[in-house]
Simulated scan of single mutants.
Amino acid sequence: MTKTLVQEPLATPASASMSGPSSAPLSAWQSPWVRGWIALVAVVLAVNILMVTLAFVTSPGLVVEDYYERGRAMEEAIRSRADVADDRMLAVDIPADLTAGQGAMLRFFVVDKAGQPVRPDAVTLFAYRPSDAGQDFSLPMIEEAPGRYRAEVSFPLPGLWDSLVEVTEGEAIYRLDERLHVKAR
């Protein structure tokens, strides 16, 4: 009988580790890429939940009850501005350095087309805060001289404000609006 020699392959450390008991594939949860994507999705969801919560908690209440009447008043203001261009000249003098919590003098001038001062029945200053309707206020303007009116104003908060000066002269109502920027202290 002849003996045949069968040569067995040599075991290398790499092949031993692949065929051993620890050769189970890695779980997807152990991959840093999967963990990274899950963390990213969790952060995005957390930020969205935070933003929605803040939107509900800090609602400025910009929806007004009388939106139709306000829209009509705006349309009327646009028409009166076109009418006043032919009949009256309105101007408002607003200081450039308005600061929240500090008083400032706003002046308003009204003259007819010949340049003569006009004495309307009433002049009122309205201040609207676009981001918070609870801060809106109005003041009657005091006559300094014929056609020249003033109001001492103190804006409670910094930021953008819309001012509207309303002039009532008999049945006619004229309006002049300006956007104001109030600085923080």
Rank of each mutant, 00 (worst) to 15 (best):
F108D: 05
M105I: 14
V84Q: 10
A151C: 08
T12M: 04
R175I: 12
N48F: 06
G101E: 01
T12H: 07
P21R: 08
E152N: 15
R129T: 06
E75P: 00
A91F: 09
G71C: 01
L125F: 15
V47C: 12
I78L: 14
Y67L: 10
L26K: 13
A85Y: 05
R35F: 08
T124N: 08
R148E: 11
D83R: 15
T53R: 15
V34C: 03
V118F: 08
D121A: 15
F155I: 00
M89E: 08
A39K: 08
R185H: 11
E76I: 04
P9R: 09
V153A: 14
E76D: 11
V44T: 14
L26D: 06
L160E: 14
I173S: 13
P130F: 05
L106E: 00
A42S: 10
F108C: 02
T4M: 03
T99F: 03
Q116F: 02
E65L: 07
M89G: 04
R185L: 05
S80Y: 01
D83V: 06
S80I: 03
A172L: 10
G159P: 04
L106Q: 15
G159Y: 02
S138L: 06
P95T: 06
V44G: 11
G115K: 04
W33C: 11
V52F: 12
P146I: 03
L45S: 07
